[in-house]
Amino acid sequence: MKKIAVMLRDRQSEALRMAIGLTILNEVDVYILDATLEANAEVMLNIEMAKEMRLRLYTSNILNEGMEYITIEDVAKRLKGYDSILPY
């Protein structure tokens, strides 16, 4: 089992679907940094599923509701603890 950080960028729905799939064999955390979470049904559904599967969701953008706020300094520190970092 590897520890993986999925960094959401411009294709959030697919990134979340991938993050959920990766949990089959790995421990996965999801980050959305400065960007805003897209308010479409597909993203919201995947966010709900991610939460149900107990993925940890972090954001440095306070506007993203339902995610744990984290500073960029702490993101940088945490990233060093992952085997793989997957910006998507």
Binding site: G21, L22, I24, L25
Partner: peptide
Amino acid sequence: GSQYDNALMNREADKVIV
């Protein structure tokens, strides 16, 4: 395959780049 194969790759690989 499916995302299972991605999960497998991530588990097996020493480093992953996107």
